[in-house]
Design a protein around this nucleic acid. Structure first.
Length: 605
RNA sequence: CGGAGCGUAGCGCAGCCUGGUAGCGCGCCUGGUUUGGGACCAGGAUGUCGGAGGUUCGAAUCCUCUCGCUCCGACCA
């Protein structure tokens, strides 16, 4: 039996290494200090040319810096340099999730079909869900998200309201078999995602859980150094609950956003409301008249042919719903249908534009000539149509349109609704301002789910009255890789990446200008060692390359602080500091360089 | 899924139309020179031309099939 001091000592040792095992990577474990962060031995395969398939900046730069390597369409290996940045973002996410009271877990990538059949999504999810069978022919899918699994966990382990609130999160690789993967990590099929799921009994508590996540997300993206905006998003067919997307501003963004210059309102165009103006339609001035429009099918063609502006046309879209009903949707000629709004209005999961044959059957004319007059279909119209008069519509007859069409007099509409896509210049739905539009990358999404899954899968707990009640859920996602990519979209110049310190793969790059010069080598090596000792994440460029090549690589990989150790500076016992983000060059005394750099790093974190 | 295109050395590409056993640039290796913004000289290695089948004396090249990848579209009647 060991004596007390021995036990204590052992205990301390155990705790010590345990402590380090929990450390974020930027706190270097003493055992790891000797690990080579020498460029000559590190794997950083930079490319002068960017690969042919990289379209957007972040994809080009991530490939050129050797952060990622493509393995298959939408599937990438994270190379050492890229992984460091990924891990930084993960760590920031972890910090803030933990701070907000969420608990980390890790669910499997392979999900049994059984659970997905229970929620109904095995049928609903479509081809994005990658399905496969094991050797026993049991069906599985790669998890694209984990509501089913987490709900299963909770229903089996949480029985009482006393265990609530509960928020479980994981940082996991997801798989979605995207129709069109593109833009590198921006839209991959396999990607790392943080997903969290909250469980509450009361609506107000669920709202609190949502609010906590919303605030945590703000902190996360602020800490990552991103310019972002939280916008109202569509909550889909799941219900009227609320949802926000966190959008990073970037021209290459796949989402269109509108926001108001005058107030806080910001929304995805999928969601953005269009305010109905009070303006009434002018009284009909023209009679309904047939005009020949040979082969003039599109709005543009008809408008040009009849020499009227597109906003004097009304287009009639024939859509087919998931219950096989055909519906006619009327929109002002120059407007676009917002399909999400239509889905929500009809309560459908999907609609498609009707096939040519269906259109012919329903309207008696080929596509391009559909109109509401005499049409035996359900007719719904965008609010704006109500304010139009003497407009042009299809006549349900090949090569014929009507001019001078008017509501009520010539045809009736079952319902008016907000169905069109918002555009820049529209009045703000909240104030007197006008909407502006811009593009963003969706890096995070917070979503109040309600009881969809708890109901389908029987996730209930007993409340303080002993009654069994369904849990109210929320789900909260962050695309980790996409966040890194979005950061590069925002932080780069012609020469390469300009990392914000908090997510930079390394904090300091020491450039040893001429490794064959003993004085230079010695000074750079000892500065490197000192920085390691101070816990600075440092990469030492000790390659026997010409200075030009080293500087070019330094700019490309974008480490925030670059220290050049060269014969020129050493004559004055100095090294040269340059921030990647600026132009100024600062000379540091060799003796205090390490400490100064540590301070610069801390100031930027 | 519809349309278009591309698969030739690690990367970027030429060669294909008009069949005759494969080339350029970058990178890589060796030696030398060079060392503050992608150096130079000399020498060198590297390809089942995505795969299968066919036509042919002969196929990277022509034909068929197949696999992979990329782009555009998938509401604007």
């Amino acid at each position: 039996m060991p004596g007390l001091p021995g036990l204590l000592f052992r205990q301390i040792q155990v705790n010590f290494s345990y402590f380090y095992s929990l450390c974020p990577i930027y706190m270097i474990h003493p055992r790891n200090r000797n690990h080579s962060m020498r460029y000559s031995q590190y794997l950083l395969p930079t490319l002068k040319e960017s690969p042919a398939d990289a379209e957007i900046i972040s994809h080009q730069l991530m490939t050129r810096t050797g952060m990622i390597r493509k393995v298959a369409a939408g599937i990438y290996s994270y190379m050492p340099f890229g992984l460091r940045s990924i891990r930084k973002v993960e760590q920031i996410v972890r910090d803030e999730m933990n701070r907000a009271g969420a608990i980390e877990c890790l669910m499997p990538m392979a999900n049994p079909a059984e659970l997905w059949k229970e929620s109904g999504r095995w049928e609903k999810y479509g081809k994005e869900l990658l399905r496969f069978k094991d050797r026993k022919e049991t069906e599985f899918c790669m998890g694209p998200t984990h509501e089913e699994v987490v709900t299963d966990i909770v229903r089996n382990t949480v029985n009482s309201y006393r265990q609530l609130p509960l928020n479980l999160y994981q940082i996991q690789t997801k798989f979605r078999d995207e129709i069109r993967p593109r833009f590198g990590l921006m839209r991959g099929r396999e990607f790392i995602m943080k997903d969290a799921y909250s469980f509450d009994l009361e609506e107000t508590d669920a709202d609190t859980s949502y609010e906590k996540m919303y605030q945590a997300y703000r902190r996360i993206f602020e800490r990552c150094g991103l310019k972002f905006s939280a916008v109202e998003a569509d909550s889909g067919a799941i219900g009227g609950a609320f949802s926000h997307e966190f959008m990073v501003l970037a021209e290459s963004g796949e989402d269109a956003i509108v926001s108001c210059g005058g107030c806080e309102y910001a929304a995805n165009v999928e969601k953005a409301e269009v305010r109905v103006s009070a303006e009434a339609a002018a009284a009909p001035a023209q009679a309904l008249a047939k005009v020949e429009t040979p082969n003039q099918k599109s709005i543009e063609e008809v408008a040009n042919f009849l020499k009227v502006p597109a906003d004097k046309l009304v287009k009639t879209l024939i859509v087919q719903t998931d219950s096989d009903e055909l519906v006619a949707v009327l929109l002002r000629g120059d407007r676009e249908l917002n399909e999400i709004k239509l889905l929500n209005f009809l309560g459908c999961d999907w609609v498609v534009m009707a096939e040519e044959a269906e259109v012919v059957k329903a309207t008696g004319a080929p596509t391009g000539f559909a109109g509401p007059v005499g049409l035996k279909l359900r007719i719904i119209a965008d609010n704006e149509v109500r304010q139009m008069s003497d407009f042009v519509i299809g006549a349900n007859e090949k090569d014929v349109h009507f001019t001078g069409a008017n509501l009520e007099r010539d045809f009736k509409v079952e319902t008016f609704a907000d169905l069109r896509q918002a555009v820049a210049g529209d009045p703000c739905p909240r104030c007197d301002g006008r909407l502006e539009s811009w593009r963003g990358v969706e890096v995070g999404h917070v979503f109040k789910l309600g009881t969809k899954y708890s109901e389908a899968m029987g996730a209930t707990v007993l409340d303080d009255q002993g009654h069994s009640r369904e849990l109210i859920m929320g789900c909260y996602g962050i695309g980790i890789g996409r966040t890194v990519a979005a950061s590069i979209e925002q932080n780069h110049d012609d020469n390469g990446i300009i990392w914000p310190m908090p997510i930079a793969p390394f904090q300091v790059l020491v450039v040893m200008l001429n490794p064959n010069d003993d004085a230079v080598r010695g000074a750079a090596e000892s500065l490197y060692a000192e920085l390691l000792e101070l816990g600075v994440e440092v990469l030492l460029d000790d390659r026997d390359e010409r200075p030009g090549a080293k500087f070019k690589d330094a700019d490309l990989i974008g480490i925030p602080l670059r220290v050049t150790v060269g014969a020129r500076g050493l004559k004055q016992e100095q090294v040269e500091l340059k921030a990647r983000a600026g132009d100024e060059i600062e000379m540091l005394a060799l003796t205090e360089a390490a400490v100064r750099l540590r301070a610069r790093v801390d100031a930027a974190l």
